[in-house]
Design a protein around this nucleic acid. Structure first.
Lengths: 208, 208
DNA sequence: CGCTGTGAAAACCTTCACAGCC
DNA sequence: GGCTGTGAAGGTTTTCACAGCG
């Protein structure tokens, strides 16, 4: 399955949720694509990698297709997530209530700051980084979210990987190295802004 | 300039910052690419779109190249950013101190919640959404960051666009529509986790 | 000789357009 | 007739490999 297709599956899942919430039972590639913000040909091609789940002349069963995509993504049972770094951002992520409906449970919070360790955030006690390995194992966490300072990111990343998580989502702008077999994704807000700035610059010099 | 290249420029900028901080004056495509986490051929191709700034047989002048990329991105003078939605995430973003070194100043905070409007966050008073248009104009903001609930995202987006910003960074998972000429980027943390879950699933069934 | 800059080749992804089934 | 599923065409991005300059 092409990487680009995988990257779009979450959009399709959300679009289907949205249609389902509106009581739509059956939909067409045209409609679903419009909701997801892609072209209909692209949608059909992407879905074809999951097998044949539509009916010609009719369309797709919203609920069934939703199930197929959720299964492909592996979010039929809640994936367990540990958040490391309970600063401003870690706090915000821990309190974010939207993870549940996307298929995730935040099961552990970890930090090193003595002022934070032991305190309660979003109904959970923050544990010390030293307890990380035990926590990951005991809680069955498969994904770690890193919201730590850039200077600590690689060190902490090495620890969560050694502890056994298979996926890491980093909010650090630092380039991180992970062993093969572990999946890493990075959200760099500064980089996103810089890309916007590039296009803003274009707009300006094109004269508007 | 290819879209894919633009998306990588921020990485190169950060890599150059990192080298410069270590006192490196001249570097090769090989070294810089390693720091940025890309292939050296890709780096050279990307840089070639900015013109010819290296010296054959020698390499690139770190400081000079940094300047060229910053200019291309339009971050030589600080871009002004307004954050809309001062909940958990908006708070975290407002307090994040790293924007300065990436070329941005947060110049305004906006919300609608009476409990938040008028309070002080990160040394700034939160203004009401009704004042948005005036603020954007008065402060010269070119980019808006949306950290609002999904249900309000499109409405708020329309307002910031009407107020005159040219770039929008949304943290909502909702698909947003913007007029042509306005640039939109979306950071969807739930989607990132789902993509990680997909790969985790693969790993599991491949047998580890 | 070393390293950049770049055409050309290969890989990847998207879009088209229609055959095939409902 | 309508809409999916998909080969084929078209476009973009990456990689290769080397000419060209210092």
């Amino acid at each position: 399955m092409p990487r680009a297709t995988v990257d779009r599956l979450p959009r399709y899942l959300r679009a289907l949720d949205s249609l389902e919430a509106q009581g739509v039972v059956t939909t067409s590639s045209e409609t679903l694509a419009a909701v997801a913000g892609v072209g209909s040909a692209q949608l059909r091609k992407d879905l074809s990698f999951l097998g044949s789940h539509g009916r010609r002349g009719v369309g797709y069963d919203v609920s069934h297709l939703r199930g197929r995509i959720a299964a492909a993504l592996g979010v039929t049972s809640r994936q367990r997530v540990v958040i490391v770094g309970i600063g401003n951002l870690g706090h915000a992520l821990a309190n974010y209530s939207g993870f549940g409906e996307r298929g995730f449970s935040v099961v552990g919070l970890v930090d090193v700051d003595p002022a934070v360790v032991g305190s309660s955030v979003s109904g959970m006690v923050v544990r010390h980084l030293d307890e990380l390995e035990g926590l990951v194992d005991e809680l069955g966490a498969t994904i770690a979210v890193l919201a730590v300072p850039s200077s600590a990111a690689q060190r902490v990343c090495d620890r969560v990987v050694a502890a056994g998580v298979g996926g890491v989502l980093s909010f650090s702008s630092r380039e991180l190295a992970v062993p093969t077999g572990v999946d890493l994704r990075t959200v760099d807000v500064g980089a996103e802004l810089q890309i916007l700035a590039f296009h803003g610059r274009r707009r300006q010099s094109t004269g508007a």
